[in-house]
Write a protein that binds this DNA or RNA. Sequence first.
DNA 1: CAAATTTGACCTTC
DNA 2: GAAGGTCAAATTTG
Length: 349
Amino acid sequence: MEEVLNFIMHAIESSKKLELELPNIINHLEILFSSIDEVEKSFGGAKERVMMLLSSQHDITKTTLSNSFASMMSHDVFMNKTQHAQIDRLLDLMQNPFDMSHVLLENKMISGGDIPMLRSKGTLKIGEMVGRNVEGLEKSKGLEGEMQGIQTPPSRPKKSRKIDLEKRTVMVPAPQVGNTDMPPEDGFTWRKYGQKEILGRKYPRSYYRCTHQKLYLCPAKKQVQRVDENPNIVEVTYRGDHICHKSLTAPLSYPPPQQLLVNINNTQTTISPQLSPSSNSRWPQAANLGLRAGDASGSGGPSTTRYGIDYPVADMADTMFNSGSSSGNSMESLFAPMDDKWELDENKS
DNA sequence: CAAATTTGACCTTC
DNA sequence: GAAGGTCAAATTTG
């Protein structure tokens, strides 16, 4: 419990720090990123500990947890107006490749030649919560279809798209280099099972399901689609919750998440319903999107998607309550780089 | 050879 | 019947 408190206190501290420094780092995206990252990690650590405690105590459902966070989010705890403005700016940058290069230059200047958050693969990462389409809300038609475990003979088993799986859509930047069609990373391993041209959409939609779908009957799925207006952003729609443990699907050691974490609530009106208890209760655990850029192995062949963990502030709700993330050990790897970042930040301030 | 991706066909919904 | 979602055989890759 003490550990939880430590994490929370650290998160709060980091938040305050961020708030104070905001005017100074408004143009320093890398610092801004690090700061957000710090806050997120701390809350993530707290969440993890709480989850561990809960699982030992049993029976407090994820729904409850999600609701709690939904409530927090609805009060905009983590996103004040200034932060929203920052995100708007980042989005603008994302929408213009030229501006992106400007960002790079900008970071270079700031960091004296090194661009920790942009130099590797992830580049900028903006999670935009565009909607939680509670598709299943009125679909009390009952659970039909694939999760029932009813075996139907040879000719294709009956399946239904109307399974009571909620959808959650997030917008994340597409990889800028390499195979830009790769789906965002989110800590789980996915297997592509289809791709389809969608009417009115410029780019095809890819369908992924949890690699362990068969082994663990894990119902988690996701769709990845590039945004027409801005190919630099992909729309990821999650359906179903992972029931397989993350450790089964992702490596135990996570690469330092050097990506940008931004949560964008388009509009308050959009968000509120999305945060309804019912819609939260079954969010995919993997709400934390990442990017795997620079991987040119996108087409064909076994390329088990090894997703590093990263937690966009974008979806801190999920980050805190839904991602079955790292082990105790991993926290070290999470915080180690952060210390460096803060050193950097503190030097600036 | 196992595991992942590709892709055309099939299924379900509207 | 059209469109979206899924299956599964074929293909690719390590």
